[in-house]
């Protein structure tokens, strides 16, 4: 049993129009996706802006009204608010946001910010609470005198670590991290990613790591799902995705990541333009008549891709020939 099982998760937003402002259509922000997060792992959810990856993250934390589907936590369906409460779900699943400045209340001191989830879920005395917050500050590498400072007195990386301290305060089992480092400079990003890993090693936390940065995802995640227009187009291990991408969308995404190796620059550019050409010409074949991805099909024990029937046949034929 996985820690989190997501089955056919769907989030639709109504579009109102016409004279009577009636619901005439829906935006399919998330359109039937399924994946599992194992205890202690970092699961990567990758997509471009508008792909629905953040909506998925918010649904998992319970911040989004889901249209249909299931989210199971230790085997229990927690899509209802009451069940979430019963199973202490909100205590065990926390979130880190991209923008650390706007997600921390500017008028509250660090002590109050980090203690907030503790106050919600645990009844600690003021003294115990302070000790706990000091421990958390130490875990994320901030000095004890941060306790009475305000968010704006910290740098971006430090603020993100305050956000992490707040998220781990209740000893959660899962942290949903929505673009946790994309607003940070490279050297600060390294610090924050290291802290996330350190906490994972110490407390066995799982992450749902949502990002558009494929470099960071490769560094952090063993299992990865690629999301496109509300659906998953490819799911697999890090090696599956990076070494053997099958869906044209994944291929194009990978080809677009700039790399620092100058010697292979022209080669990569050529490869990218080639894939871009294929994408322009054949992208339609990879999507159904509504322009949405096909259902995922299994191509190996760990590797799934949203391939149409003919592509799949092509692929299996190729595999057979290879062996």
């Amino acid at each position: 049993m996985s820690l989190i099982e997501i089955r056919d998760l769907t989030v639709h937003y109504p579009i109102r129009s016409g004279f009577w402002n009636r619901v005439t259509d829906v935006v399919r922000a998330v359109d039937g996706i399924s994946f599992d997060i194992e205890a202690g792992e970092t699961y990567g959810l990758v997509g471009e802006s508008g792909s629905g990856k953040s909506t998925t993250g918010k649904s998992v934390v319970g911040l989004e009204q889901i249209t249909s589907g299931l989210i199971k936590y230790n085997g229990v369906d927690i899509t209802k608010k009451s069940t979430r409460k019963k199973h202490n779900y909100n205590q065990n699943v926390q979130m880190i946001f991209q923008d650390s400045l706007s997600s921390l209340n500017p008028r509250k001191r660090v002590l109050d910010i980090i203690a907030e989830p503790l106050r919600n879920f645990q009844k600690l005395s003021a003294e115990d609470e302070k000790i706990r917050v000091l421990q958390l500050l130490e875990t994320v590498g901030l000095s004890p005198d941060s306790l009475y400072k305000y968010p704006h007195q910290f740098s971006g990386g430090q603020r993100q670590r305050i956000g992490i301290a707040r998220a781990v305060a209740t000893n959660p089992q899962l942290i949903v991290a929505d673009e946790p480092v994309s607003a940070l400079d490279l050297s600060v990003q390294a610090q924050v990613l290291n802290f996330m890993k350190k906490i994972q090693r110490e407390f066995g936390i799982s992450y749902l790591f949502i990002s558009h940065d494929l470099g960071v995802v490769r560094h952090m995640c063993q299992n990865i799902a690629i999301m496109n227009k509300g659906r998953l187009v490819e799911v697999g291990t890090r090696e599956d995705i990076y070494d053997d991408p099958l869906h044209i969308y994944t291929k194009r995404l990978l080809a677009a990541i700039p790399e620092v190796d100058v010697s292979k620059r022209d080669e990569r550019m050529e490869n990218r333009l080639k894939i871009e050409k294929v994408y322009q010409e054949k992208a339609k074949q990879y999507y159904d008549e509504d322009g949405l991805a096909y259902p995922l099909v299994q191509v190996s024990p760990t590797h799934f891709a949203a391939l149409p029937q003919d592509k799949l046949a092509e692929l299996t034929g190729q595999k057979r020939r290879d062996t």
């Binding site: 990386g157 470099g215 560094h219 063993q222 620092v260």
Partner: peptide, 26 residues
């Protein structure tokens, strides 16, 4: 050199390998 070294590398272990961190801050 430090900046280049602090970039995420693909072949690192997802659980155990840390990135290089430049001490202090700007």
């Amino acid at each position: 050199r430090s900046l280049l070294r602090s970039m995420p590398q693909g072949d690192m272990d997802v659980l155990n390998d840390d990135l290089y961190v430049i001490q202090g801050s700007v």
